[in-house]
Design a protein around this nucleic acid. Structure first.
Lengths: 239, 239
DNA sequence: CGATAGTAGTTGTCTATACAAGTATAGATA
DNA sequence: TATCTATACTTGTATAGACAACTACTATCG
């Protein structure tokens, strides 16, 4: 059975176009978005239709509109309007606008007992292991460690994680079906303290994540520098 | 200077009118709301204006629209569907099996500036305030502070919170539509340290929660004793 | 130089109209 | 009776135009 061609309303097309420009990086936060008039002209639509598209994007928190001035790409605040659980990882990934990442570890290794249990593997099986420090303007803000089941993402090691974050890559490759998060306040290890420039005894937040893609598990563990709150906004779904 | 009379847009007036009918009980769940055409006639507006009003009320979850049939008052579903975000609070409430609670504060008071802002109230308005320590086998594990808009739960103060937790009670009374969580690692105040028997400099986790029930806000803030992890399991929603 | 007025461009609201798409009902038809 | 059809009503989308409110900028005036 051929999948029927989805018909999108015109205002949906305009929305998608703007969102695409934002997500592709063509439009960056605070950049000016085309005005209603211009969008209407581009899409051969009326201004009201462009207005509807932009109004909805405003409600979704992707753009900000100022009367008399224009429309601008919203800064990705932690806690913009994203989705449920997924946003924990996504928001933190986006958080603050990560400019660079320092790859400390990226290799295949034999999985140790403790991790093997969590991942439904046998000790000694191969896993991909990565440790990455995400930096914002040179300052470390996230220390993330991952163990990935090779079956989930066979080409994990070949990626250039300066260009795409592991989160983004894995989301592309493997459909996440279920996730478990453990949030914890901790005093972190000296090595991590160094990377994030945390003082001893300064409380920081740890987020551990296990995701299931079919029967395969990936684990993800990040330490977030202290003082930085993490805000999570979720809309309830009715019905 | 006298506060200038707020000028409301026409679509806002229509929205208010419908909301008023719902809240006054004139319109009950599943009742049919006037059609766009009829509302337009009543308010001497165009159908597009009535359409906007109803569309926004749909997004706010107050009405349900069915093409070709009509518009109906939405049934307030008191959190029956267990969704992701909500479970944060629920899990924490259930966490560890709380055996007893110690009520430190449970009274009506005048809201202070800081809280008023968060709750869309004016300073000096009445709020219900409660501070409760939840104990597991005599040991404090949670320190929770709440500010509740009296309009949300007029009988909040009359409850026996040894029998039912505030979370449970509020879920029964008011349908939560939207929630915002802020998770943070903190060093908490001495008073709270005492209740939870935390050593100074021991990192603990703070969870602040704001929930919206229509336009009314309740805030909820808990401190969770250190070492205790909080586990959150969520299923992804596809699409 | 500083203040003012004008102007162009933008978003916000609103109208009147049109057609598409979906549903329910009554009436006609096989 | 069962099925189809026409119709009336509803919501969904889209247009073209209008005016209001606001901002940023330029030119002018004192």
């Amino acid at each position: 059975m051929a999948r029927s061609e989805q018909v999108f309303a015109l205002y949906e097309k305009i929305k998608k176009s703007v969102v695409k420009d934002i997500e592709s990086g063509k439009l960056k936060p605070d950049d000016k978005v085309h005005s209603e008039t211009k969008l209407a002209r581009i899409f051969n639509a009326s201004r009201m239709t462009a207005n509807r598209a932009l109004k909805e994007l405003t409600e979704e928190g992707r753009i900000v509109r100022v009367q008399g001035v224009g429309t601008f790409v919203a800064r990705p605040k932690p806690g913009a309007a994203l989705l449920e659980i997924k946003s924990i990882a996504k928001e933190i990934a986006d958080w603050g606008g990560v400019h660079s990442s320092q790859i400390l570890v990226l290799k295949q290794e034999k999985v140790k007992e403790e991790i093997a249990q969590k991942m439904n593997l046998n000790p000694g099986d191969a896993v991909f292991h990565s440790i990455i420090v995400h930096k914002d303007k040179g300052v470390g803000v996230q220390y993330s460690e991952r163990f990935v089941n090779p079956k989930v993402a066979p080409h994990y090691l070949d990626q250039d994680f300066n260009k795409i974050t592991p989160s983004e890559y894995l989301l592309q490759v493997a459909p996440v079906q279920e996730a478990e998060h453990i949030i914890e306040a901790v005093n972190c290890k000296r090595q991590i303290q160094k990377h994030l420039k945390i003082k001893p005894d300064e409380p920081c937040m740890s987020l551990k994540r296990r995701t299931w893609s079919f029967d395969m598990v990936a684990t993800y563990s990040i330490i977030i520098s202290p003082g930085s709150r993490y805000k999570l906004v979720g809309k309830f779904i009715r019905g």
